[in-house]
Write a protein that binds this DNA or RNA. Sequence first.
DNA 1: CGCTTCTTTCAGAATTTTGTGAAGTTAAGG
DNA 2: CCTTAACTTCACAAAATTCTGAAAGAAGCG
Lengths: 165, 165
Amino acid sequence: MNESAGSGQDAQAVSRFVESFAAQLVEAGMTRMPARVFAALLSSDEGSMTSAELGEQLRISPAAVSGAVRYLAQTHMVSREREPGSRRERYRVHGDQWYEALANRENVLKRWESALREGVTSLGPDTPAGRRLGETLAFFEFFEGELAALMERWRAHRDKTFGSG
Amino acid sequence: MNESAGSGQDAQAVSRFVESFAAQLVEAGMTRMPARVFAALLSSDEGSMTSAELGEQLRISPAAVSGAVRYLAQTHMVSREREPGSRRERYRVHGDQWYEALANRENVLKRWESALREGVTSLGPDTPAGRRLGETLAFFEFFEGELAALMERWRAHRDKTFGSG
DNA sequence: CGCTTCTTTCAGAATTTTGTGAAGTTAAGG
DNA sequence: CCTTAACTTCACAAAATTCTGAAAGAAGCG
C-alpha cells in the first residue's frame, strides 16, 4: 500500500491511465495490444518492462506480448534490450525517441506521394483531376519537408524547458 | 476511346489510381469504403460525384456509399451538396480543404493530451513516469501549436506555386 | 551436451467488422 | 395528395481480426 517505492505507485492508478491512454491510441487507429503495451511502458518508472511484467500487468498471454512488441519494434516505437547474462528481454520506450517515430509518418507520406505521382501521370497532368492530384502531392511534399524542421524546433524547445538532462 | 472528354479519361486508369491510393489510405488506418470513395472523388474531374456514380464506379451498394459518405462528412473530408431541384446529392472534395482536415488531427491530439494530463496528475508529476508523461504532453502541445503556423506557410507556398486561382 | 527459462510461432475459437438486401424515410413533381 | 426517386437505416451473413493455449525454438548455465 506504499506508493513511494520506485516502481510501486498505486497499481490501480497506473492501470487506469494505461487503459485510458491506450483507448485513445486505439481510436486513432492503433491495434489494441500494441496500444496497451505501449501505454504500459510509457507509464513505467523505468521506461522499460520485461515480457513477464507486461503480461502480468495487462493480463495477457506471452503470445500477445510477443505480437505487440514485434509491431512496436517494427514501427520504432520501442526498442528491445537484452540484459546481458539472462534470456529475459526488456522492452523500452526511448523517452525522446518514440514521439519522433510517431511524427515520423514519413514512410506513409512517401507511399502516398508515390501513389499520387502515378495518378498524375496516368490521368494526365493537364486534366482537372490530374491538377488536383498534383496539388495534393505538392502539399505532402511540403509537409514532409516541414516536419524535419519542426522536430528540430521541438528539440530546442524541449532542452530549454526541461534542461538537457 | 477518346480520353480528352471532360469526364472520360480511360476508366481503367482512374480505377487503378483509385484502388491503389485507397489501399494506402487503408494501410494508414482509414476504413476501406471511405478510403475508396474519397479516392474516387479525388480523381474525378469535377471533384464531385453523385451517389449513383460512386456506386457504379466502385461496384458497391447504395448502403455502402451512404455509410462511407457519412463518415467522410463527419470528418470534414468531403461536403455534401444539393443540386437545387433534384433529390440527387453530390459529394465533393474541397480541393484546398480536404488535406487541412487530414492534417487537422487536432481532436485526436486534444484527447491524447487530456489523457496524458490525467496521467501526470495521478502518477505524480515528480515520479519518473510522471515526468515522462509530462514531457510527452509538452510535445503534443508544441506540435499542435506548430501545426497552425505550418498550414499558413502552406497556403502561401501554394499560392506562389499554383497562382491564387 | 542436456536442462531450464524465456520467447516465438501456429492453429483455431471467439469476437468484431464489413457490406449487402430490403424495408423505411424524406422530399420533389405532377 | 399521391407517386416516384433518392438516400438512410437495420438485421444479418460473410469475412477478417484478435487473442489464446500448446508446441516448437533459442540461449544461458551447469
